[in-house]
Design a protein around this nucleic acid. Structure first.
Lengths: 199, 199, 199, 199
DNA sequence: GATGAATGAGCATTCATTCAT
DNA sequence: CATGAATGAATGCTCATTCAT
């Protein structure tokens, strides 16, 4: 029956959610598997039915939540009329940052794993992932950009690196105050790389 | 005696050096205090005479080695005739990157701790630190820059974030191939923020 | 279908064969019930339908394989024309040793369980077992032997004990080199106990 | 001071004695390290200060107690006037058997480890061990024996194998009743191998 | 200051056993 | 008959920390 299957799913989900809560609260190193199963209300052996160790469960979480945020940003973009690639990039960035602003614990968790690592991972999996992501943003104008991937790599590292402490600790300033500077820098890079090509 | 020679080095120094060797080899989580004291050839209790725990010793190391790299870069800069602030920034960046290229284990260790965290830490200590660092680079023209610190924050995060996997894994490309793109992006930002001010 | 073929073998047989393979490969302590049922391709609960625990299945194996070897030796003896009881004993011994030489894993498994333990077990079960075994070997002359059972006990312990490491590790020498000494010692005992009686 | 050293010794001894008591009571597989340290009244970590695992401690015990029994038998032999090698062998055997009769738990523990294994182990260590043992028994007549070591191997396996259940379970008969048969068989072998040589 | 033996809480991991399906 | 998800007690082992010397 489906009952058993449902139950299986629910155990795994419970473990994932509980682990996320604990990881973001106490940190992954300070969280033991005992903590997770106790909080999830399942037997300790059950954990090993679904995950290899606590880092396995962490990877599941990063991949799943990260993908979910990107998809959401693209869905939001689709609802707009924005045409210019630069503007589309800014919109997606803004959308993602706002998400993290609303759920800072997720940012702390994904930490520096967001960025190229996530992209590479997505690329090397079967899913359309990154390619699809880029096409959605740059559309037909994709050929107008020189060293597109390298440029994005630089932007992503700058954004993710700088916004980490901004969002979590408002340091060196709160996000809303920081955004103009950040977006200005991003546009500087976008413009620089675009001119390089078209000239 | 030679024995005396090696005993001259204070126990604290021995602990620091040994810890660095182990942290960069096995990783900090896999290194136990026992490992450190055994390798250092001191008693276990001695550890607690100088450090609170293994993270305490790690912080000491990050601060010390980071400072040392910056000082070296500044000393090298002083030997040149470079005048333009933009060029001076590029020189320092290049100098630091080359250092990490030569000692990648240090990069892995400092990891993403380099960047704003290090600056803040340096600022809040008694030493002149960051302020001195900036003056050395921008000299009298320091007032010509708008949002200087924010701009540097962005640059540092971009550089440190992107160069981590570049230097350690040659991913997405080797450092020498990456440098032109990186430096171009940095100049885009420098130019953007400079124009903003002077206009 | 071929699938049908392999399903014909009862689950119990599959469990026995799989357990034997695992016990002789990894050792009984390192083999878990999970290992057995996984390798056998049956459900975990099915195990408890047929056996109490992993030692229960081991006993089944020892009894079954041990009996099979003895029967084979007797069948081989029947095909010969050997008449003298001493010679018949030697033939059976040789036959059994050769079997273990060919299947050393079985020896390791039965280990020191062969010997009196096996005999006793056989006696106390309903089957004719030992009695039949002795009659086949000594025939009518059985009354000519003093303390027959005790003598056999001594011989069996000497043979099984000494041949264990000889066959498995060629220690202190290979079986073929060892046999003359062993058989000589056995004949010494046989002769000693026979003379005692007839004198 | 010696105080510390003494304390160390006592901990290790306590662990050895406690382990022996538990091993002989519950069996080694059913004994956990927790059981040992609890019964010994020391911390769990202390165990690992002195032994690698529970089999390590078992080996220590087998070696130590086995050696002790052999030495005792030799000391007793030295007090007698027995001259004939055969008689000296019988004396030593009897002495060892009596010891096990008095301390059957030790027999169960050493189990089938007594025998060649112990000899080899003793030989391969630095101590004079076996060689010394043999010289004490056979003295100058040692060259009169053909295949001396092989013969002893056979005897030892026969004695140890057969006496195990005799002493522990009085099966197939009590030790005192069994001895005449056993000694007779041993003398058969001794005589057989001796004649072989001298003829 | 320096030591290192002793500790025991804490951890990951295994696995026999049950029982609802 | 057969299954296999779920369990949680039990185990081996690590390691930060203490303290008598």
């Amino acid at each position: 029956m489906g009952k058993l299957e449902e139950n299986k799913q629910s155990k795994q989900s419970r473990l994932l959610d509980t682990a996320f809560a604990l990881y973001t609260t106490k940190g992954i190193t300070k969280t033991s598997i005992s903590d997770i199963v106790n909080a999830a209300g399942v037997g300790k052996g059950t954990f090993y039915l679904y995950f290899r160790d606590k880092y396995d469960i962490a990877n599941h979480l990063v991949a799943h939540r990260g993908r979910s945020i990107c998809h959401q940003a693209l869905r939001d973009l689709a609802k707009t009329e924005i045409e210019l690639p630069e503007d589309r990039v800014m919109f997606v960035l803004n959308s993602i940052l706002d998400h993290f602003q609303r759920e800072p614990v997720l940012l702390r968790f994904i930490n520096k794993n967001l960025s190229w690592g996530l992209f590479k991972q997505a690329i090397h999996q079967d899913e359309p992932g990154v390619e699809h992501f880029l096409k959605e943003i740059f559309r037909d104008s994709i050929s107008e950009w020189r060293d597109l991937e390298t440029m994005l790599y630089l932007i992503i590292e700058m954004v993710s690196g700088s916004c980490y402490s901004v969002i979590l600790d408002h340091d060196p300033m709160p996000l809303e105050e920081f955004k103009p500077h950040l977006f200005f820098a991003v546009r500087c890079i976008l413009k620089g790389f675009h001119d390089l090509k078209t000239v």
